[in-house]
């Protein structure tokens, strides 16, 4: 319940934050809302020696209509994303998913950037950004870099960010043709046992799955089948292809594969397919 001791740095700007990370390297962790990191620190599963608190960088909290896409500041809280009129209008999937995370208190603190940078396969927003085919923008000592969501999630709690980089913006295409998030839980506040996200973007259908492997994953086989004219029901049958889901107290790998198919079928139907 009591984190190990650490030094606390509160940079006044994004560039100061990047410098602080560069200075402390692996020893440092970014703190945004803290709702991924602090729970680990309280159980001493994470013991960073420096926390770089970027939670107050107001410049990173926004939802902007950027023409063909939506630009969301990394420090936008789940609560704000859920209620943001621009997000609700242009990226209703993200807005909906943000409202399904954790509980209200968590949504009052947790941020989209924190959630994505944490790269937890059981987390909701990473799969949504994957399904939408989003792009992540990171600031490092060398400036800004864009990373497609498809290449961002590299392993369990492991992202493409280098230790010196700060995730600054999440870009997603405007997608209003239909969407769904089927989150299967035993208890409302829990992580998804399995989740299936469907986004219809420019005539394409994006499908991504939650908690079925070390990273959030695109259901490529489903997407390809749909693109090739398969029915939603036929496509959903392919949802578990290539998955190597984890086993835990709530599900075996086999049950997760089954759920991936069932939930994907339901999500596709809910998205109007």
């Amino acid at each position: 319940m009591i984190p190990a001791s650490f030094d606390y740095v509160r940079p006044g700007s994004l560039d100061e934050a990047v410098s602080a990370l560069a200075e402390h390297g692996d020893e440092a962790k970014l703190l945004a809302g803290g709702h991924s990191l602090l729970p680990l620190m309280k159980l001493r599963l994470a013991t960073p020696s420096v926390l770089v608190d970027i939670g107050r960088l107001g410049e990173l909290s926004y939802v902007n209509d950027a023409g063909d896409h939506l630009a969301i500041g990394a420090l936008t809280r789940h609560h704000d994303l859920h209620h943001d009129p621009v997000a609700m209008h242009h990226a209703p999937l993200l807005s909906f998913v943000a409202g399904r995370i954790g509980d209200p208190q968590v949504r009052h603190r947790g941020t989209i950037g924190g959630s994505i940078a944490h790269a937890d396969p059981a987390s909701d927003l990473p799969a949504a950004v994957l399904a939408l085919g989003g792009t992540l923008v990171a600031r490092g000592p060398g400036g800004d870099r864009e990373i497609p969501a498809d290449r961002f999630f590299q392993g369990f709690l492991e992202s493409a960010l280098t230790p010196e980089e700060v995730l600054t913006e999440i870009r997603v295409p405007k997608a209003t043709a239909g969407h769904a998030y089927q989150k299967f839980v035993r208890r409302a506040q829990d992580w998804a046992i399995v989740g299936s996200v469907v986004a219809r973007v420019d005539g394409r259908v994006g499908v991504a799955l939650v908690n079925v492997g070390p990273t959030p994953v695109r259901a490529d086989a489903v997407e390809t089948a749909l693109a090739g004219g398969a029915s939603a029901a036929e496509a959903a049958e392919l949802a578990a292809e290539g998955l190597e889901p984890p086993a835990d107290n709530n599900a075996t790998p086999e049950f997760r594969r089954h759920l991936a198919r069932v939930l994907t079928a339901r999500a596709l139907a809910e998205a109007g397919l």
Partner: peptide, 15 residues
């Protein structure tokens, strides 16, 4: 394997 309230399914109002 259910040694905290995140893993132990203590029922909430929503269920």
């Amino acid at each position: 394997v259910t040694a905290n309230l995140a893993d132990y399914e203590f029922v909430s109002a929503a269920e």
